[in-house]
Design a protein around this nucleic acid. Structure first.
Length: 763
DNA sequence: GATTTACGCCTTTTT
DNA sequence: GGCGTAAATC
């Protein structure tokens, strides 16, 4: 396969770029991942360098995996070494597992995720015992992170970021850092910072790494933060072969420290850089591009690109006003059903600014039996039971990991109560030693209360057993042993609902399987733990999902035939807290741009003035988002600019039925919405139930079925249960992660069942 | 140690 | 207004 084949002129120029820095400004859908993958293949195929001299960096594991697959697709399996394609963070972990002794840590360090950070901060706050400290752990974490990413140490904090609370933050920041250090643990920011510090201070290490990685490629460069920029500088100083791809219009992670100036100033930072713009879009219709362009044009902080496409004009954007969030969800659900009937293979997405908006959509989709997947609620590795198991592993490998020790010390309960734990923590802090060492000490302390020391001794014996066990067994076996020894399953069965306990146990099983697979791939235990710490839920997003629900942030990099942008209201999008500065507002606008450009064929935008909001503005109706007003008038229908009074707006909308331009491959569904506005009510009589059934009697098309589980059991359907016999589904609703069905059985009467466990057959 | 009550949180969160 | 975790209580 010719690598340059099927590339347009600009893409080809980028792929064939020689030595020295290059900046590829790639608009949405212009094939930027493609360019990186092809360039990697090009470098290898043309023997510009050896595969192992190439480093490609992405932000997500998903992007890294995709990149690897694409390179393999072009080149076939490589016989020799592989190029290193990894995220910033896993690259750093890799570096640190070899080099961290330079920074005074041991190589078996633990990685603290956000949850661990929060626990640590809470512990420090407790220890501080300041009765009225007015900062939340969450805010403290973000301020510490901000300081770290701007190179500000605890000592400099007050001077650099003066505020009323700066003194407190400084104190906590410094405590936080020393706790981490004493626990031989690093947070996500540290992974970058310490790597940078080592590369800066250790010329030998720097030389080895920059000689090894002579061609460095970076995806989504607009999202890099300062430490990432420094890392790249250090790695490329010797050879200057830095090839970055990005889009300043898609920079949406400022709140996480991303610095848009990195991409805006690239040519200044790396002299002699060549700039290539990719402006041909292969994803969306012309109308969608025009709308996106019109919105983002209102920003000043951009280099300016004009996207064009050879695709059809396509439809205009449809705007929909609804009276309430529930109505909004119902309208979207109706549209989705129509679209899926016409186009069973389309991928659709409902995108929103904030996660809480998923609620109404989930409820309605569940009632309607629309198969959907939510991205970004609770990640697998974030689940309580999975974190517990991982904490056990962490303690086995790094007994200094205090947060992990505290997590498992009395989970499951083993007689190490609150007083004992407080005593241990206090003593550990006073002596400046890890908690596990205090556990060992007090376990053999004759002066210590007998009952407590006995429990501690038992715990110590277990830990030692596991440490020994690990020497000649696999992680999967170790996890099995821990599960057995701790009686963890018994704890779950005792404390939780049966269904919930089984669910959690299933997750643990999955973890054990993942560990076994990791081992099969020849990975070490730390590889496994690292991946657990650095993985996110997006990595598990199944691209075959028919209807996806997620935030716009999560949707970056994805595409769908049809996109619904929900909650297009002032105050929510742009968010109130982002309307203060023009910088923040521009970021919101870029976010909107990202949302719009996810759509290939059709874009719907919806809004409602009466979204339940708390706080000072509770109750007052919201206006339509300014971003919709920035869309060209002739490219959006259903938006009435002059009228904001809800009833008026509604009447106008109902009287105006539009004719739309059509194109060849998209035909707007014309059927009436089939979702009833009334939420399903329990029928009071047989007659009512019959009436409801009649209303529900409509043939289902294959496209709306959940392919995995067969038919979706909706209200009104007849089902058969092994024990209870035949019955009729009365309602279907979410309960936690499960789906609860209420069913009346002809013999057994009314029962509530969890769908996953009920083994129901549709009749 | 288990159960109840109270409180804190509520924008996005690639790692 | 709703939810999940943490303190309070038995």
């Amino acid at each position: 396969m010719d690598i340059l084949e099927n590339l347009n002129q600009q893409q080809r120029l980028a792929v064939e770029h020689g030595k020295g820095p290059a900046l590829v400004l790639a608009g949405a859908g212009s094939g930027k991942t493609r360019v990186i993958a092809h360039r990697i293949a090009y470098l290898i195929r043309n023997s510009v360098c050896r595969p192992e001299n190439i480093l490609a960096v992405t932000f997500t594991n998903k992007a890294a995996t995709e990149m690897k697959e694409r390179v393999h697709a072009i080149l076939g399996e490589l016989r020799s070494a592989e190029p290193l394609i990894s995220t910033f963070h896993s690259f750093c972990v890799r570096l640190l597992r070899q080099e961290i002794h330079h920074a005074g840590y041991r190589r078996d360090f633990s990685i603290y995720d956000t949850d661990d950070q929060k626990r640590l901060i809470r512990q420090i706050l407790k220890e501080l015992n300041d009765p009225e400290l007015e900062i939340s752990p969450r805010e403290i974490i973000s301020r510490i992170s901000y300081a770290k990413n701007h190179g500000v140490t605890p000592g400099q904090y007050i001077k650099r970021f003066p505020s009323e609370t700066a003194e407190d933050v400084q104190f906590i920041y410094s405590k936080y850092n020393s706790h981490l250090k004493n626990s031989n643990s690093l947070d996500f920011d540290d992974l970058l910072l310490i790597s940078v510090a080592i590369l800066k201070e250790q010329p030998d290490t720097r030389r080895r790494f920059s000689e090894r990685y002579r061609y460095i490629l970076v995806d989504e460069y607009q999202d890099t933060n300062r430490p990432q920029y420094e890392l790249l500088r250090l790695l490329t100083a010797a050879h200057n072969n830095l090839f970055v791809v990005g889009d300043e219009d898609q920079s949406i992670y400022k709140f996480r420290g991303a610095d848009i100036q990195n991409i805006l100033k690239f040519e200044k930072d790396f002299t002699g850089a060549r700039t290539i713009k990719l402006e041909q879009n292969y994803r969306s219709s012309q109308n969608i591009l025009s709308v996106a362009g019109a919105v983002v044009q209102n920003n000043t902080e951009r280099k300016g690109k004009v996207l064009w496409t050879e695709n059809d004009g396509g439809d205009v954007v449809t705007c929909r006003y609804e009276e309430s969030p529930r109505d909004e969800a119902i309208w979207v659900a109706g549209k989705i059903q129509e679209i899926l009937e016409l186009y069973p293979n389309h991928h659709l997405a409902v995108l929103y600014r904030a996660n809480f908006l998923s609620r109404n959509f989930e409820d309605v989709f569940l009632e309607e039996g629309i198969p959907y997947a939510v991205v970004g609620s609770v990640a697998f590795f974030g689940r309580m039971e999975v974190k517990d198991m991982l904490a056990y592993l962490r303690v086995v490998f790094n007994p200094d990991d205090d947060i992990a020790v505290l997590r498992i010390l009395n989970t499951p309960p083993r007689g190490i109560g609150k007083t004992t734990i407080e005593l241990l923590t206090r003593a550990a802090i006073d002596k400046g030693v890890p908690i596990m060492r205090m556990v060992r000490e007090k376990a053999h302390d004759a002066d210590f209360p007998g009952r407590a020391s006995k429990s501690l001794l038992r715990f110590e014996k277990f830990v030692d057993k596991w440490i020994g066990f690990e020497q000649n067994h696999s992680v999967a076996q170790l996890l099995e042993t821990i599960l057995e020894d701790t009686q963890y399953a018994e704890m779950l069965r005792k404390n939780e609902l049966a269904s919930e306990a089984e669910n959690r146990l299933a997750n643990i099983e999955e973890l054990i399987r993942a560990a076994a697979e990791s081992e099969d791939r020849g990975e070490t235990v730390t590889d496994f733990l690292d991946r657990a710490a650095l993985s996110s839920e997006l990595d598990h997003f199944d691209p075959n999902t028919r209807v996806a629900l997620m935030t716009i942030h999560s949707a970056k990099g994805l595409e769908f035939e049809v996109v619904f942008l929900a909650g297009m209201e002032e105050g929510l999008f742009p968010h109130t807290q982002s309307m203060g500065s023009s910088e923040d507002l521009e970021e919101e606008r870029r976010l909107c741009y990202v949302g719009i450009t996810r759509a290939k064929k059709r874009l719907y935008v919806t809004w409602t003035p009466y979204r339940r909001n708390y706080g000072p503005e509770a109750g007052s109706p919201a206006r339509v988002s300014r971003f919709l007003e920035e869309m060209p008038r002739d490219l959006i229908e259903g938006l009435d600019r002059e009228i904001y009074e809800p009833m008026d707006q509604r009447q106008r909308l109902q009287t105006s039925s539009h004719t739309q331009p059509r194109n060849r491959d998209w035909q707007e569904p014309t059927e009436k919405n089939r979702v009833s506005k009334e939420p399903f009510k329990q029928p009071k009589s047989i007659a009512e139930l019959k009436a409801y059934l009649a209303q529900q009697q409509k043939p289902k098309t294959p496209g709306t079925d959940d392919s995995k589980k067969g038919t979706v059991l909706k209200a009104g359907m007849r089902v058969r249960h092994d024990k209870f016999g035949d019955g009729i589904v009365l309602s279907r609703e979410r309960r936690g992660n499960d789906i609860k069905l209420v069913i009346t059985f002809s013999t057994a009467g009314r029962k509530s069942l969890i769908e996953r466990f009920a083994k129901l057959k549709a009749l």
